[in-house]
């Protein structure tokens, strides 16, 4: 594949490090981790590319935001994930900015783990409107101020949280940083 940038320089160790960052982020909502090890294709940032390399493969159906279509060949080559025709068919998804969560599979009460995980790429994980987070993973509460989420995000998230134990999980990526919002986290305007 001519013209594609490489994947992880060290596929085994880089994927392990990235996974631990994602696991740490999912376990402690709002905690910001940094990742490295990949030269991403436009328009993906380092963190988005690393997360996709780490988590998706030919066993995961994947939906790519059409606005990020330029990265399609790179993802197909390095991950081999079959593309989902519709968002609701995807186990993993990538969107530039927050996608409409209601279009994705939230799983059901007997199989809540079948819900989609969406990698949401934002301009920055700091500098936006501060959000106060609480719930499992947090001793008290945490604050995160991602830039580029819609103003009514707390209300959108409340609806997602209301589906529990079903629900969508988000991995927020910006530059070489990432944070996660599991379905359990409560989000309020700080």
């Amino acid at each position: 594949m001519i013209g594609l940038t490489a994947g992880f320089a060290d596929p085994v160790q880089d994927a392990q490090r990235c996974f631990r960052s994602v696991l740490d982020a999912m376990s402690r909502p709002g905690r910001i981790a940094t990742v490295a090890g990949v030269a991403p294709p436009a328009p993906l940032c380092v963190a988005s590319a690393a997360v996709l390399l780490t988590l998706i493969d030919h066993e995961t159906t994947f939906w790519l935001d059409p606005a990020a279509g330029a990265a399609n060949a790179w993802i197909a080559f390095h991950c081999g994930a079959p593309s989902a025709d519709m968002p609701r068919d995807a186990a993993f998804a990538f969107s530039l900015g927050l996608a409409d969560l209601t279009r994705f599979n939230a799983g059901n009460h007997e199989g809540p783990e079948t819900s989609a995980t969406i990698v949401v790429q934002l301009p920055s994980l700091t500098g936006g409107a501060p959000l106060r987070l609480s719930g499992p993973g947090l001793k008290d509460s945490a604050t995160i101020a991602p830039l580029g989420l819609p103003a009514d995000f707390p209300a959108i998230w409340r609806r997602n949280r209301g589906l529990f134990p079903a629900g969508i999980d988000l991995i927020l990526c910006a530059g070489n940083t990432l944070a996660a919002l599991p379905r359990t986290v409560q989000v309020e305007e700080a």
Partner: peptide, 29 residues
Amino acid sequence: NFAYLDEQTKRMIRRALLKAVAIPGHQVP
């Protein structure tokens, strides 16, 4: 491979772990 499991298997287990963390106490197949 490093830590015995092949990377494909690790990815599968890692995905399950993330869902497990997101749904505390739920058994993920």
